[in-house]
């Protein structure tokens, strides 16, 4: 699906990423873990198109790619959901779902926004994700953290992205909302999407991921299935940077 080879990034004297190989397989939920400074954020910024690599190559569906911007990545079917969700809180849910890619009706250049279609389709995306929100004309500001996450994910559906990268989706959430977001990830995966999950929370990783890649000091030190692991063992691995029995 997505594979990177020898990906490296240097900020001045700092080697943030020192040659990482990683394969994201179609239909899986891959978790990327690591301590602060391990290179997770840098890796994700490059994969999502926010930054370019100093070295290495990236292939999407077998084709060499270099994203010019996050929007470029989005257009090619890779959506990134940022920690702050990149929503406009005072605008309606449907306006957020369709931001930058609004539906219009009309002839030729004479086009007006097709609000009923957007309102209806946004509702459909949310239903697909198992969200309880039905009135998509509500402002995003009125939603809970978990519901906001569903709006951000609905936007990825709108773009028909087949890979969704989620950056610490549960970091700012309470217990109940975390459970909601994990359900969202399962729903997204069930809808055939490949998910790359960056997380500090090992319980989340164990709950939804199929495979985990652990980074340490800019290198990938572990890449293995999650099955059979518990959160504690995983935490040890992240800290030690190697397999722990």
């Amino acid at each position: 699906m997505l594979s990177v080879r020898g990906l490296a990034k240097r900020y001045g004297a700092v080697q943030a990423l020192a040659g990482v190989d990683l394969d994201v397989r179609p239909g899986e939920v891959l978790a990327i873990c690591g301590d602060n400074g391990a290179g997770k954020s840098t890796l994700i910024k490059i994969v999502s198109g926010a930054e370019t690599a100093s070295d290495g190559e990236m292939r999407l569906r077998g084709e060499a790619v270099r994203f010019a911007s996050p929007h470029d990545a989005l257009r090619r079917g890779l959506a990134t959901i940022y920690q702050d969700l990149a929503l406009a809180p005072r605008l309606a849910i449907y306006q957020n779902v369709f931001m930058g890619a609004e539906l219009t009706r009309g002839v030729g250049p004479l086009r007006v926004l097709d609000k009923p279609a957007m309102i209806e389709q946004a509702r459909g995306y949310l239903a697909q994700l198992g969200s309880s929100v039905t009135d998509t004309t509500r402002a995003v500001a009125t939603l809970s953290g978990g519901q906001r996450q569903s709006v951000a994910i609905a936007r990825a559906l709108r773009w028909n992205a087949d890979i969704v990268v989620m950056d610490e989706p549960t970091a700012a959430l309470g217990v109940k909302e975390t459970a909601q977001v994990l359900d969202l990830i399962r729903a997204l995966n069930a809808a055939g999407k490949t998910v790359v999950l960056i997380s500090h929370n090992m319980a989340d990783v164990v709950a939804v991921a199929h495979r985990v890649a652990i980074l340490k000091q800019g290198r990938k030190v572990i890449d293995r299935p999650v099955a059979g692991l518990d959160a504690d063992t995983l935490s040890h691995m992240v800290m030690a940077g190697r397999e722990v029995a």
Partner: peptide, 24 residues
């Protein structure tokens, strides 16, 4: 209210970074 241009202007003022990420 009814054109893409208009809503893009609104998005720009409401959430500049989000608008940029959405390709506006």
């Amino acid at each position: 209210k009814n054109t893409r241009l208009g809503i893009h202007m609104v998005c720009t003022g409401e959430a500049e970074e989000s608008a940029r990420l959405a390709g506006i």
